[in-house]
Simulated assay, not measured.
Amino acid sequence: RIDRFIELGRESGVPVIEDCAQSIGASHDGKKVGSFGNLSIFSFYATKCMTSGGHGGMVISDSADIIESLNSLTQYDKTQKHSESYNYSLTDLQAVIGREQLKKLDSFIERRQDIAGIYDEVFNNLGQEIPSDGGIYFRYVIEVESPNHYIREMKNQGIVCERPVFKPLHQYLYNGSDNYPNTQRAMEHAISIPIYPSMSDAEIEYVCEAIRTVWGK
């Protein structure tokens, strides 16, 4: 629905900010995420699809005014007038790591997609139909009726599975769950199975065997 948000932004004059923290490298209708809104943010935290050494991020925009405003937030010296600013700059070492990771991003995503395809096949063979959306698979998330049961059983097999998030945003904002039924259901029934590009073939097979054991009962 990003196209509709862009349309609403144009109609109302409200800028659209894309949160691409978990989707760098992904595409929508043949166009890269981060290229739709007026401003887009990316995260380089250690668990994301690429990192700059643990922490860091990136903001992009095709507006010179927005970029100038963002730059002013990090310039706390040699300015003509005082303004609120922050020391949010990456270190040189983090920047080097990030640049090298960016070169490998496509291969990272391809590996994630390959692993997801293997998991899909295992689940499908167990009668668990897993829809494939061709995403970048920052996480491999499946829906189950009893998440705690599967998390516990996978842990018994030596595999750590987690809920995708600790708590959805609307609960922090104290908005009723009835207003967000899809989010609430995802929170109550989704678990995340380990997936990352440096997994060895042996590790992938170990996870697959655990899936066969737990879901095959």
Rank of each mutant, 00 (worst) to 15 (best):
I6L: 13
I6K: 05
G9M: 06
G13H: 05
P15E: 14
V16T: 10
E18T: 13
D19W: 02
Q22M: 14
A26P: 02
A26H: 04
G30Y: 02
K31I: 12
G34A: 04
S35C: 07
N38H: 10
L39M: 09
S40V: 01
S40G: 03
I41E: 00
S43N: 09
F44E: 03
A46S: 08
A46C: 00
T47C: 02
C49A: 04
M50C: 09
M50L: 15
M50R: 00
T51N: 10
G53R: 05
G57E: 01
M58Q: 08
M58W: 07
I60N: 09
S61K: 07
S63H: 04
S63M: 06
D65Y: 01
I66R: 01
I66L: 04
E68F: 11
S69M: 07
L70I: 15
S72M: 11
L73N: 05
L73R: 04
T74Y: 06
Q75A: 12
Y76R: 10
D77L: 11
H82I: 13
E84S: 11
N87F: 07
S89K: 14
L90T: 06
D92L: 13
L93S: 12
L93D: 14
Q94V: 04
A95E: 13
G98R: 03
R99I: 14
R99N: 14
E100V: 12
Q101F: 02
L102E: 12
D106F: 06
S107K: 10
F108K: 03
F108C: 01
I109L: 12
I115Y: 05
G117T: 05
I118Y: 12
Y119H: 14
Y119V: 15
F123Q: 10
N124H: 13
N124G: 11
L126H: 08
G127A: 11
Q128E: 10
D133K: 13
Y137D: 03
E143H: 12
E143A: 13
V144Q: 05
V144T: 10
S146N: 15
P147Q: 05
H149W: 10
I151C: 10
I151P: 05
R152L: 10
E153A: 14
E153L: 13
M154Q: 09
N156K: 15
N156E: 15
N156C: 09
G158P: 01
I159F: 00
V160T: 12
C161H: 11
P164C: 07
F166W: 03
K167L: 14
L169W: 13
H170S: 08
Q171F: 11
Y172V: 01
N175H: 13
D178Q: 07
Y180D: 10
Y180H: 12
P181H: 11
E188V: 03
E188D: 15
H189Q: 14
I191K: 04
I191H: 04
I195G: 00
Y196H: 02
Y196Q: 00
P197F: 09
S198G: 03
M199E: 04
M199G: 00
S200G: 06
I204F: 06
I211C: 04
I211V: 12
I211M: 15
T213Y: 09
W215N: 01
G216N: 09
G216F: 08
